[in-house]
Amino acid sequence: MSSLLCSSIGKKLLMGLSGLFLMMFLLIHLAVNSLLLVPDGGDTFNAAAHFMATNPAIKIMEPLLGVGFLIHIVWGILLTIQNRKARGSSRYASGNKTTGVSWASKNMFILGVTILAFLVLHIAHFWVKMKVTGDPLLEHTLVNIGGVDTEVENAYRLVNATFSYLWIMIVYVVAGIGLALHLSHGFWSSLQSIGFSNELWRKRLNTVGQLYAWIVGLGFSLIALLQYLFYQG
């Protein structure tokens, strides 16, 4: 097993599997976020956030998610360092004129670092406040869940207040586009790395991958933008 994970393909397997796991998380995250657009003062979103915070399955997944991020980041850095070394010390003076290679696929590391920088900010904005320090905006509110009035944290108010700042909205929109680019290569690439691709499936995975990437990436961007424009006050 250790020799598998030390090999180049083994390392790519870890990158691919952690990537696929994170992509699943992004879908769930986007689904919950989309409730921010339900115009009911945030009751639906608060109910969903309450469910996510109390559901035991989600509680188990949370540390796993952290591990997934950690593996993806650490191995990404490791592989990039190795690849730089393998490229050699001298560069081509005539540059690289190979056509038909997507920009995203050549810049996955830069895009990854961009997303990581955003992630730090994002965690400080929400996760730290909701799980560690608390925030006056989170003061409990009553939400009717399945006919029962339940006291829940007002996560919506925190989100809504955060997105009232122009710079935060812009950072989130840009990060969403960066994420879309990262995923536009990442989706197909993760499956290719674990061996699930061939001549036929490559075309299919590419199509699905582009769709997934831009729906998820622009989805997050759009929610931040709409929150800023139409859900304030």
């Binding site: 180049s8 390392k11 490229r87 690289n96 290679v101």
Partner: peptide
């Protein structure tokens, strides 16, 4: 040799 990133060049 380096690790493949499925770039396709």
């Amino acid at each position: 040799f380096g690790n493949c990133t499925n770039t396709g060049a």
